[in-house]
Design a protein around this nucleic acid. Structure first.
Lengths: 340, 340
DNA sequence: AGAGTCTTCCAAAGCGCTTTGGGTTTTTCG
DNA sequence: CGAAAAACCCAAAGCGCTTTGGAAGACTCT
């Protein structure tokens, strides 16, 4: 059932039927009703390929997926996706993942824009002066960044959590509890979120005249193994920290294991706070010692990004509005006063 | 730069240029070279929307993503995606995720097929007599199932691992080590993989005249917390198992925690084997006691599914070939003889 | 040399929709 | 009551590609 058949069936022109269906004003309400009705009754759905060719709009949002043999997709991605998908579903938006060589994403961005494959894109895990941002900005496709970049002379729309504030707060509490030697187990410090977190910790320490020593900071991809290694390295040195702030729950698993291997205890010998993105399958309250966390649902972020993307596509949102979400600090058993 | 311009520029008809570019035989090799050359030089890329409208092919593969407020996307998904994306990239295939109400995926399948949005789809986490399978089969779109269903009177193409064999082997080893009371902590037993795993364990036990008691089997979604709960329930009963076979590494985390809470040890009091899908961020050899596993890379499966999907799209693969991958049993420190 | 066969190319007809640029009616209003 | 303005509808021209159905010329074969 296509437009031609439908319009013939109604003894109307394709123009009128099309207009009626798309809500244009120059059609009699009575006629519109007739058309809508017939369309529904016959299950008419405009062919998206045709519509696309005619309008250039695809009704899809895009994401360039960095791939490669040595490239691992962040497990956070799937949670973000849950939220995104949840919103997208209710608005009949599809998501197209365009896999790209992790070292050359530009080609792919250019392709999907040139081909008008998607109406908007989102960018995640941005770095300072991230080239993807500059690119997408000049290409002129609607976009939203999940996270933040830095060092651009233009503004851009983004959704981020207050990483600096969260880690500032976590560190502040620890300092208040008497800890003088804090350590930070961070994610890859080429990414902005990690930089912000470090900044937050440093600022909290500085407020009490403390510093974050070179040997008290680790930046690694967020795996259990790296958490373990970092913790071993930190805890086996002479000036071992009495508190650790950790960028991920998965790394925290490794920290806990290291602490055990070293016959230390939490929170007796070490206080631990980690960031929790809220995975359904791993919850901080279920750690051997309930884990204090800075918490922010990455899933909600996904839904919000989708929402804003949809708004930008339909022209409801304009400009370069940045949105920063506050982060909860949830104190559980893993923090205590500094050992004497 | 479109076809019209290019062909005008070459003083050829659009027909000829199109044919030259798409490798049709009825064009002079000399001419073809000229065309190809000019196309490359001017960076001509056929408009996919137009091509789509004309051919009905989209160059994309689809996946219907079950979503909903209470629906969590399996963290395995992201690993599978890594593999899929890795292959897709090298073949300029995009993946479109169509979010659907988890309770009504049929509508979405019908839509993407009717709209010819994708050239093929894959289906994951199938259940026995899975309706999606029957649907997709009648709709006539190329597809591949990752996993297996059961109870259909038609064959279908799939890629699965030998879940039954893997768990049979794991249980067999444990029995050989003298264990008489085995337990199984399984995933959601409405899914085929879980059924197969249970079958494997039962078969191994039966071979030695043992059985898997009602109280020695748990089927839950694969979270750390559920692993913990299941283990507690199993280990606190009178006829506590001396060995557990567990369907996921994430659940195994919970098992380990439970064992500790109960002041038991692995492998002294309990032997443990889990299935490992090979996550980059959580490795069995890094468990407190290195974990024995049945191992199969879900990422490789993703790549293979993409490969076969591509083959089916281009007509290189036909029929309903099923492919079952063997699973490695990797024995590490977490298994030992049954306690006396 | 004429008939038949390849080879090489083309004009034009789709694919199914949106949108432009008018035409008719009908309504409004001085 | 006649003219200007709305209201309503249509034919046809795209969007950019693929593919059908030939046509023209070059080659082969008897």
């Amino acid at each position: 059932m296509n437009l031609k058949q439908l319009s013939h069936m109604l003894s109307l022109s394709q123009t009128t039927v099309s207009r009626a269906l798309n809500g244009y004003p120059e059609v009699n309400e009575e006629t519109r009703r007739r058309v809508m009705d017939a369309a529904k009754r016959h299950g008419y759905r405009p062919n998206p390929s045709a519509r696309r060719l005619a309008t250039g709009k695809s009704g899809m949002i895009g994401y360039v997926l960095p791939t490669g043999n040595a490239v691992d997709i962040d497990p956070h991605f799937v949670e973000f996706l849950s939220g995104l998908g949840d919103y997208a579903r209710s608005h009949e938006l599809d998501l197209v993942l365009s896999p790209a060589d992790a070292d050359d994403q530009e080609t792919t961005y250019r392709r999907i824009v040139a081909n008008r494959q998607v109406d908007a894109v989102y960018i995640s895990s941005p770095r300072p002066a991230d080239r993807r941002l500059a690119l997408v900005n000049t290409l002129g496709i609607p976009f939203i960044v999940h996270g933040r970049s830095e060092g651009f002379d233009f503004d851009y729309p983004y959704l981020d959590i207050d990483n600096e504030g969260a880690f500032h707060e976590a560190a502040r509490i620890l300092v208040q509890l008497g800890h003088k030697r804090l350590a930070l187990i961070n994610g890859d410090d080429r990414e902005t979120f990690a930089i912000h977190r470090e900044r937050g910790v440093r600022r909290a320490l500085a407020a009490s005249g403390l510093t974050l020593g070179e040997r008290h900071i680790c930046s690694l991809t967020m795996t259990e193994e790296n958490g373990y290694r970092a913790a071993r390295r930190l805890l086996e040195q002479s000036e071992a920290p009495t508190a650790i702030v950790c960028s991920s729950l998965i790394m925290a698993l490794g920290v806990v294991r290291a602490v055990r291997d070293l016959d230390l205890t939490i929170p007796g010998d070490l206080s631990l706070v980690a960031h929790d993105d809220v995975f359904p399958w791993l919850r901080p309250e279920n750690f051997p010692v309930p884990l204090s966390t800075t918490r922010s649902s990455i899933r909600l972020a996904g839904a919000r990004v989708a929402e804003r993307l949809a708004a930008r596509i339909s022209g409801l949102e304009e400009g370069a509005r940045g949105e920063v979400w506050p982060v909860d600090l949830v104190v559980r058993g893993s923090v205590a006063g500094a050992p004497v």
